[in-house]
């Protein structure tokens, strides 16, 4: 169908090329700089120490940033521990448990439409609203009802961690259910009918028809959960702002990194952008070496629809 219609002396192919380049050039330029270049720049920045020179920042090569980053990383055992606990509980409850609830929603059982709305609401409302309400429930209301003068978020890092973990499970639960149930509702009903005629139980239907159907989505969420071990701030900034006292607050690396990013500058601050760039690289190396092979293995050996 490639009709060559000449207009203004240009062939269709040429016109399409010109139009294509004209339209994509700016977005591609933006993407190149903000998605690709910044990745390289953060690698380069990690090896630089800056000072203010005439009219700008002047950098010199150093390993100091990696030294600092490695110290922070290796002394952050408690932060990693908390992140792993969150990851594990989310895997079990929001992903694992969520699959059962997704099945309920996908099969359009009683009140499933209503539940889809309430499951989606926390996703839509975002962090601030629910965190603020939750915070005052755990402080003012809890203190009044229990007589305990200390709110649940103020009893130290461990108590605060349980509260924050519960919050994240409570809010994050619905999102997975929504996505899984939508994927499950794409399963061909005739396949299900045929399997029923052969006498499978509901549990077998769930395990052998629906799980394979949503497996790629499941893998995506599973991998994303692992990838978030260093980036997920658990809404800690919304709860506690920039407080990083690990005796009092359940700090994780995602929160630590975000707080330091808000405080840092190129020069002059205790933690600078080059420091954070080096820390980011350490995280990236660790995550890449885990996630890429894991994803490959899971997709290769996981259940299939056929």
């Amino acid at each position: 169908m490639d009709k060559k219609i000449k207009r203004s002396g240009l062939k269709r192919g040429a016109r399409r090329w010109i139009f294509f380049l004209a339209i994509v050039s700016l977005p591609v330029l933006q993407y190149f700089f903000f998605a690709i270049y910044t990745k390289f720049e953060s690698v380069l920045m990690a090896f630089q120490k800056y000072k203010i020179g005439k009219g700008g920042y002047v950098g010199s090569f150093t390993w100091d940033n990696f030294e600092w980053a490695w110290d922070v990383f290796t002394s952050g055992g408690d932060m990693i521990g908390r992140s792993l606990i969150v990851m594990a509980t989310k895997m079990v409850i929001t992903i694992g448990g969520g699959l059962f609830f997704s099945y309920y929603a996908a099969k359009k059982y009683f009140m499933s439409n209503f539940f889809r709305v309430t499951l989606y609401l926390p996703q839509m409302l975002g962090g601030i609203v629910l965190v603020v309400l939750y915070q005052y429930l755990l402080s003012d209301v809890y203190i009044t009802l229990s007589g305990d003068p200390t709110g649940l978020l103020d009893k130290g890092a461990d108590s605060a961690f349980i509260c924050v973990l519960f919050y994240n499970l409570w809010v994050g639960f619905g999102g997975n259910v929504m996505v899984f149930s939508t994927s499950m509702s794409g399963v061909n009903e005739s396949v299900v009918e045929a399997a029923r005629l052969e006498g499978i139980t509901p549990l077998q239907e769930f395990l052998y028809i629906y799980i394979p159907a949503i497996y790629p989505t499941f893998v995506t969420y599973f991998i994303a959960l692992i990838a978030g071990v260093f980036t997920d701030g658990l809404q800690l900034y919304t709860f506690f702002a920039g407080n990083l006292d690990r005796d009092l607050y359940p700090v994780v690396f995602g929160h630590y990194f975000f707080v330091k990013t808000t405080e840092a500058k190129m020069v002059g601050t205790v933690v600078t952008y080059p420091n954070l760039a080096a820390l980011g690289i350490i995280f990236s190396i660790i995550l890449t070496s885990i996630i890429l092979p894991l994803r490959k293995i899971m997709l290769k050996h996981g259940p299939r629809e056929d």
Binding site: Y136, S139, D140, I143, P149, T150, G151, L153, D154
Partner: peptide
């Protein structure tokens, strides 16, 4: 006073 220990 008790308010000194009440985190709210």
């Amino acid at each position: 006073a008790k308010e000194a220990y009440n985190t709210s």
